[in-house]
Computed example of a mutant assay.
Amino acid sequence: MLPADMVGGVSATRAANLEASGEALTTFMKRVDGVLRDLESSAGNPTKVSAQTIRAGSLNSGTQGDFPEAHGLYEQYHAVHEKLTSLSKTLHLQIEAIGIAVQGAHKGFDALEEDQRRRFWEIQTEIDKLQPKKSSASGGDGTDVKA
């Protein structure tokens, strides 16, 4: 049995504590904007990360037979580089989306400008495209399902 002061599974006291003041949201939004500016000017910027590549010929003649270890190193470097580039871009997009969401929480999502609402959903779509597709053989938690 739920206590009398519980509404929707949360007590009225706890619900009041969850409400964010406009000042707190504004402070948080400024911090998110600062993090986004820092990321854009850092080496973690998605454009800068994606530009830091090496060619296969930098490690060997470009053929696997001459020096297979160098070819394996290149393959691993390339795989890690792709993942870092994707992670950097996803992080950048998530921070931008958080900034828009905080503004929406402060003003109400309907009160946001049309461009901001559209950009928020564009970001969500772009993030979905960047996320690796889950295979049917995966348990959803990173573990493989054994048949």
Rank of each mutant, 00 (worst) to 15 (best):
66 D>K: 10
66 D>E: 11
67 F>R: 15
67 F>K: 12
68 P>E: 12
68 P>I: 07
69 E>F: 00
69 E>Q: 06
69 E>S: 04
69 E>K: 01
70 A>V: 11
70 A>T: 14
70 A>K: 04
70 A>E: 10
70 A>H: 10
70 A>S: 11
71 H>S: 08
72 G>S: 14
72 G>C: 12
72 G>A: 15
72 G>E: 10
73 L>N: 01
73 L>R: 08
74 Y>G: 08
75 E>V: 08
75 E>C: 06
76 Q>A: 15
76 Q>Y: 15
76 Q>R: 15
76 Q>F: 15
76 Q>W: 12
76 Q>H: 15
79 A>F: 05
80 V>I: 13
80 V>R: 03
80 V>N: 03
81 H>S: 05
81 H>Y: 10
81 H>V: 02
81 H>I: 01
81 H>L: 02
82 E>N: 11
82 E>G: 15
82 E>V: 08
82 E>P: 12
83 K>A: 13
83 K>I: 14
83 K>S: 12
84 L>S: 05
85 T>I: 11
85 T>H: 06
85 T>W: 11
85 T>F: 00
86 S>T: 09
86 S>F: 09
86 S>C: 10
86 S>I: 13
87 L>Q: 11
89 K>H: 11
89 K>W: 06
89 K>A: 11
90 T>C: 01
90 T>R: 10
91 L>V: 09
92 H>C: 05
92 H>P: 08
92 H>Y: 07
93 L>A: 01
93 L>P: 03
94 Q>A: 14
95 I>R: 10
95 I>E: 07
97 A>D: 13
97 A>H: 05
98 I>G: 08
98 I>L: 05
98 I>M: 00
99 G>H: 09
99 G>T: 03
100 I>N: 06
100 I>E: 03
102 V>E: 02
102 V>P: 02
102 V>C: 13
104 G>I: 01
104 G>A: 12
105 A>T: 03
105 A>I: 00
106 H>D: 06
107 K>S: 09
108 G>C: 08
108 G>I: 07
109 F>P: 02
112 L>R: 01
114 E>Q: 04
114 E>P: 05
116 Q>N: 08
116 Q>G: 04
116 Q>T: 09
117 R>T: 06
117 R>P: 02
117 R>F: 01
118 R>C: 08
119 R>T: 04
119 R>C: 13
120 F>H: 02
120 F>K: 02
121 W>H: 09
121 W>V: 14
122 E>M: 12
122 E>G: 00
123 I>A: 04
123 I>W: 00
123 I>E: 04
123 I>D: 01
124 Q>F: 14
124 Q>M: 06
125 T>L: 05
126 E>A: 05
126 E>W: 11
127 I>A: 00
127 I>E: 04
127 I>Y: 10
129 K>R: 14
129 K>Q: 14
129 K>H: 09
129 K>N: 12
129 K>T: 13
131 Q>K: 13
131 Q>L: 15
